[in-house]
Design a protein around this nucleic acid. Structure first.
Lengths: 234, 234
DNA sequence: CTGAAACGAGAGCAGTGCTCTTGCTCGTGA
DNA sequence: TCACGAGCAAGAGCACTGCTCTCGTTTCAG
């Protein structure tokens, strides 16, 4: 029933996937700016207008790629986290750094897809609602690490200044209501800072500056984790 | 002598500036992807081919805008730093946060120019050598804050792991040979993290998450400064 | 004063996103 | 069963892009 849904429907799925694959290939080769619908169609042996049956516009194709990219990096983070959890149960800092390293590895491996989701937003383009769930996957992993560490032994954080209390409470309510607001606020800024490290590397800001990027990042990620209170100070 | 260099040379300077101004206007209005040489020329009342007398290609125009943007944000940082220095001499943390806030304010005010320099690299991309000096201005301000704090009262930093020593020494040699390597390494990662905070805000990653971004950023910047050892722990 | 360099204008090329029309081919409801 | 509507590929075409080349004109320097 569900499998044999007609040759037509199946072909549509396959062709849609083929278009996305070819688009991803061009993305990896040339970057988002040079992704051309016509070139994709040409490579697939069809005419450009036929492609509009599957994606109503170039932006819609890009949106599909964005969603896939969020899912891809999110899955990588979840995988690394799960692996670290079974390899070193209870070592929250290890879970944290493993997750961070997986995200960075994905970014280095797929720089153009990374740029698509964490770089400059494309022209006049406002992210459709479909992207917000996939976009949150990495963040959810980071939160779950913090949650485990908090449930395990509590987390000592520097007290937030009074002016931030309202914001921290709103933040916590929307993101992780079961965690103390100061922790959530810290986590959000840590989250942004983590991607700052990755973006600077992927976008070339570290060129001629940082050489041994593996160890540099590993150290920075660990410090980030420490400062988020994932580990008692040594 | 130097002022009367012929009407032609003066015209060239003026027209070059006019082109960049109009390009900047289109950049702010539509983003880098939609910046069109023809539209710029049209708006300036000339024909598109004439524009190639001033910029040999679209990428060269973008490169000029990139350099200007680096200079603009660099100048903003230097200005803020100088002001803070005279307003609160010796308060290194205040100098730090003032600089950070100035950079963020510039970014929020010029999101597309910010995206141009700190977002995904646009063209086939190899950053021309002309950009590296302007690109370093913000970093130099941050370094000078750290240098002042270090010269003033020393800075206590957590010891770097042994694996990072070589990298930290190379880093320090290339960036600030007069500062202790661990401090320089910390500073570099702090630098990246600072721009992570700004990028997430400018690129919309904080949408529906962080509301009161002024205070959120101010707090995060201050913590970054503290963790870079700019202030003895309270 | 003259020749070379710089300049603006225009035509033209190859490419783009996107639309519209034209037939063909499925798959389903009568 | 089979006819009709929906889905599809193809092609022509529009308006736009970056960029090149040519052709007169203007300017400046030797």
């Amino acid at each position: 029933m569900t499998t044999t849904q007609g040759a037509r429907a199946r072909a549509r799925i396959e062709i849609t996937a083929a278009i996305k694959d070819e688009a991803r290939r061009q993305l990896a080769a040339e970057g988002a700016a040079k992704l051309s619908l016509r070139a994709v169609a040409r490579e697939l042996g069809m005419v450009s207008s036929a492609l509009y049956r599957y994606f109503p516009s170039r932006d819609d194709l890009l949106t599909a790629l964005i969603i896939d990219a969020y899912d891809s990096v999110g899955a990588a983070a979840e995988r690394a986290h799960a692996t670290a959890e079974t390899a070193a149960p209870g070592d929250h800092l290890a879970h944290w750094t493993a997750t961070c390293r997986a995200v960075r590895a994905w970014a280095v491996e797929h720089p153009h897809e990374y740029a698509l989701i964490y770089g400059s937003p494309v022209p006049g383009y406002t992210a459709p609602q479909d992207t917000v769930v996939p976009a949150s996957r990495v963040g959810l992993v980071l939160i779950s690490v913090a949650r485990a560490a908090y449930g395990d032994k509590g987390i000592a954080l520097p007290p937030l200044p009074e002016v931030l209390r309202a914001e921290a409470e709103r933040l916590a309510a929307g993101v992780a209501p079961d965690l103390p607001p100061p922790l959530v606020a810290t986590l959000v800024s840590t989250w942004a800072q983590l991607f700052g490290l990755i973006s600077f590397e992927v976008f070339g800001q570290f060129n001629n500056i940082v050489e041994d990027r593996d160890t540099f990042f590993a150290n920075a990620a660990e410090r980030l984790g420490r400062e988020s209170g994932l580990l008692p100070k040594p």
